[in-house]
Write a protein that binds this DNA or RNA. Structure first.
Lengths: 325, 325
DNA sequence: TTGTAGGCGTTATCAG
DNA sequence: CTGATAACGCCTACAA
């Protein structure tokens, strides 16, 4: 900037004004400076600007796993919204270690972002309080713990209920539940919905039918073997998330049990049998969360509903129809 | 920091020293300061540090589309490497407008990252030159244009040749090529491989068999209809990328033509027929690219091979066997 | 319309 | 081993 100012025979402040579209600059002065900026290939130091002003024109997104199409879709939806406002989106992977969540998030927050959207993996977010005083933080998919904050999530309980009821409607009486970890609000709620559906149908809840650590090929295989060897062998399975569904389809003996999954994913409809799913709307969640971040930033005092639950819908395909009991 | 220094009765510099593990601090002074830092919940301002030092402990990754599992895998692999070194990864979506590529990348670079990994969408990267003087930039998947730079890419030509030869081996003589845009080096090379295989087999290259704008449902449908109505109707298709493959499988009349795709994707093996693919190794690319960034950062003078081409391998499944001519 | 002074939080330098 | 001072590049406030 110094060089530009020197070459143009003006002060640094005037150069700064040109960049910030300050109207109080003579057109000719402006033209000259712009010319020299191009020549010198000058790009203002965003860092210095941010440092000085305390805010960057970027929002952060943190998700457990960027490879998961659900989170990728949320991230892209956020990016679309931010892009329209000329704001950059910085995405980061949380990984699978809850203990590192704080480090990763603070590394983002310390860049003085204009906002942060997070699908958490941790079990305590009270430490986030001091950050929320200066940066709007919006949760997606999973609720925060120990912190009041904006959250956009799916109606997991209703979805679990819908999926299970649908299988019951197809005549199944022994329905297994397959999921991964239980420290997430989503899983807890989906299991609750599953349980309620069973109870309402007078089927009763059997703990043996719950397989809760389906995370990779081995654990999936083990879970399937255990379930299939059960005295009252299940004729149907409710898979509580897309990752588990994909693993399950690989491990299940072909067309041996009916399946309904929570969460649609690419190609689910091209499988044989095509997978019946409870469809979430990650694009919508990303859209709303990004909108909320900007709304909080623009109108800090506005009172808004913190908890926002989106409806889910069942997409009936074929996998719920196989193996009628 | 000021508060901490005041409370500890030392200067700011000493506090700074404690943070930077400077050995020239009395253990008791250090203990006292650490104590007070905890009490005050002091977190150093990364921005100020970066601003001052000119380098952040973060690397950037920019990809065309984060929803594409290939790019998501690269990003996660990079993150894994960076995480082990205690470096954060900032990911960003380039989108589909080549004109915006520069803005997005400069917004990343101006944060003074320790390095940048980019799968470009643009057609000119000469402007990046001034940045590469201060920041290691490594390309992945697609080559840069107008700029010498590190690049890790698949052997696209060999892959195209392999896929096409494989179909020829199954007796096909009319093999279509389906891809998306042609301004990418990857597509150009895959087409070249396709062409070479045809020529080597004495089959000749027929421009009518090339469908180059398969980007969404409509364009895919149109392309398939055109190809199927051709006088010499193709009995096989080489799809030059995973996105096109997924679209194609949806649009193709069931089991009507043999297919080999470039790029594996989740569930490709569970489809009926299971898709035969040329397998890339995005994890490996991410790993190598991240390694190179750090190597360039640590040893600026070391001479390294710029262009790095990774081998691809054909995974034979079923889709290449249907519709034998 | 343009310029000057001061400071954002940290660290390098050099002195004590 | 510790401290004072200056500087990183920019912007706000104020002055000319």
């Amino acid at each position: 900037m110094r060089d530009v100012a020197a070459r143009a025979g003006v002060s640094a402040k005037t150069v700064s004004r040109v960049f910030n579209d300050d109207p109080h600059v003579l057109p000719e002065t402006r033209a000259k400076i712009e010319q020299i900026m191009r020549e010198l290939n000058y790009v203002p130091n965003v860092l210095a600007t941010t440092f000085r002003s305390g805010k960057t024109s970027a929002i952060g997104v943190a998700v457990p796993d960027i490879v998961d199409p659900y989170f990728a879709a949320i991230a892209r939806a956020v990016d679309d919204v931010a892009r329209k406002r000329g704001v950059a989106t910085l995405l980061t992977n949380l990984g699978d270690d809850p203990a590192r969540e704080r480090d990763v998030l603070e590394s983002l927050l310390s860049r003085r972002l204009a906002g942060l959207i997070v699908a958490p993996i941790g079990v305590d977010h009270s430490w986030l309080k001091r950050w929320t005083e200066s940066t709007p933080v919006v949760f997606v998919d999973r609720s925060p713990t120990g912190l009041p904050a904006d959250i956009f999530t799916d109606n997991d309980e209703a979805g679990g209920h819908q999926a299970t009821s649908h299988l019951i409607g197809h005549g199944h009486k022994r329905i297994a539940y397959v999921g991964d970890s239980f420290h997430l609000s989503t899983e807890v709620n989906r299991l609750a919905g599953y349980r309620r559906a069973l109870t309402e149908a007078g089927l009763g809840f059997d703990e043996a039918l719950v397989a809760s650590y389906v995370k990779d090929r081995d654990s999936t295989r083990a879970a399937v073997e255990r379930l299939m060897a059960l005295p009252g062998r299940p004729t149907a399975v409710f898979s509580s998330n897309a990752r588990s569904s994909m693993l399950l389809l690989r491990a299940l003996p072909e067309a041996s049990v009916a399946v309904v999954g929570f969460g649609d994913f690419p190609l689910a409809d091209l499988l044989r049998p095509a997978l019946t799913v409870v469809d979430q709307d990650p694009d919508q969640i990303g859209l709303l969360a990004a909108g909320r971040v900007f709304e909080r930033a623009d109108f800090p005092k506005r009172r808004l509903k913190r908890t926002n639950v989106l409806d889910v819908t069942l997409i009936e395909r074929e996998s719920c129809k196989v193996a009628r009991p």
